[in-house]
Amino acid sequence: MFMTKNVLKNLFSKSATRLYPAEVRAPFKGFRGMLENAIDVCIFCKKCQLACPSQCLKVDLKARTWECDPFACVYCGVCVDVCPVASLSMRDAYRPVTGEREMIFMQGAPKAVKEKKEKKEKDEA
């Protein structure tokens, strides 16, 4: 019976419900959402692959590919911590739901091309 006060108060005040999806709260800063790789920056050092507790990352230095199984990723952010060039980052949005199996496959530019580009940038600078 002691709950009466509580429920009556609820009745006469605004509901606590956030009307998602009509009303979306801005994400907190530093939320560990989707994992992203700025593939242009990536040096394919495999540090992330070695650190990943879920072993969902696969990096191939030779082929310059970076693969991630987003269905196995546990969003712990360890890979971001260990990334020496900060090419990895976590967006503050969670990964959208899907009806299909997904795989993230990223192909970096060939090493030569990349170095050339970097050199050019340096020169320009």
């Binding site: 429920v7 009556l8 609820n10 009745l11 005040s13 509901s15 606590a16 419900t17 009307l19």
Partner: peptide, 11 residues
Amino acid sequence: KITARLQSRYG
């Protein structure tokens, strides 16, 4: 609906 409101829900 009222039950939801009593529980502070939208219902």
